[in-house]
């Protein structure tokens, strides 16, 4: 279960989680999780509802205080210092509908050079934001109030927000939940492209095993602990899935095209 096959140096480690334990509402949600990611990996995190995927991601960015254990991003245990290199798409964003922040303003808040966005609207920033939104086919949303977007539209904006500063590590918690299939396609294309261009490390939480199968290079199956890790082929075998989900799931079939894996998708 360790990366004995990989010969990376310590400087290449993007994420290292050691024996992470988290209790929420009296329930041990994470019971000693160990995860080590090298830079440039595109890793999927799967597991049934309530298995602690969101909690793990929140702990990685310091939103969830662990009972014990150690989280390091790029070798840095002071997570605050590593955060400028991290992009995060939360699973749920409850926006207050009375807040009138526009999509353009929201995205500009992400860019350091527009700290004074209140006074200026830089042409450069505008171009950059439009280009970023266009990659997900969402440039028409720029002047809409962010609280008035549909679920999938908001999700697209959140993805753009996370990618905007070209971070080295992307933590994506079901980023395409509620996004239509063309949107999902362009999201995976975009992630794939950024991933190749920069040495981007991606942690992707998803229930869509066909997408995981197609795009991830390594898969962690979580259920309070990491019950299984390995290549998609390995983890998505019947035994592994059964161990993670605790029920019989038809294993994902590799052959044929990847849509509609028939029972391979666990909701």
């Amino acid at each position: 279960m360790t990366h004995t096959t990989c010969s990376h140096s310590a400087a290449d480690i993007a994420v290292s989680v050691r024996d992470l334990r988290v209790t929420l509402g009296g329930q041990q949600v994470l019971r000693g999780v160990n995860i080590h990611l090298h830079r440039g990996q595109l890793v999927a995190l799967i597991g049934p509802n309530g298995s602690g995927k969101t909690t793990l991601l929140r702990a990685m960015v310091g939103l969830q205080k662990p009972d014990s254990g150690d989280v390091r991003l790029f070798g840095e245990s002071n997570l605050k210092k590593a955060l400028p290199r991290v992009g995060y798409v939360p699973q749920r964003l409850a926006l207050d509908r009375s807040f009138i922040l526009s999509v353009r303003e929201f995205l500009a808040l992400r860019l350091r050079e527009t700290q004074h966005w209140f006074w200026h609207r830089h042409r450069d920033t505008d171009d950059r934001l439009r280009a970023a939104m266009a990659e997900l086919g969402a440039e028409s949303l720029l002047d809409r109030p962010i609280a008035a977007l549909s679920g999938g539209q908001l999700q697209r904006v959140l993805i753009v927000f996370a990618l905007l500063k070209q971070p080295d590590l992307q933590l994506l918690d079901e980023p395409t939940a509620g996004v239509d299939s063309p949107g999902e396609e362009s999201f995976y294309d975009l992630i794939g492209e950024v991933h190749r261009r920069h040495k981007l490390t991606v942690v992707l939480v998803s229930h869509d095993l066909s997408m995981v199968y197609r795009h991830a290079s390594w898969v962690y199956a979580l259920n309070g602990v990491v019950c299984c890790e390995g290549t998609p082929e390995h983890v998505m075998s019947a035994d592994s899935l059964k161990e993670a989900y605790g029920l019989n799931v038809t294993p994902y079939q590799h052959h044929g095209h990847s849509h509609g894996p028939g029972g391979g998708t666990v909701q």
Binding site: V61, L63, G87, F99, L101, E105, L109, H116, F118, F161
Partner: peptide, 22 residues
């Protein structure tokens, strides 16, 4: 307040995102 407009706007939109943005 004027120097904190951006962080405040982000905080109002989402505390979690504000945290991750530093």
């Amino acid at each position: 307040l004027f120097t904190k407009l951006s962080p405040l706007a982000l905080l109002t939109a989402s505390e979690d995102l504000a945290h991750v943005c530093g």
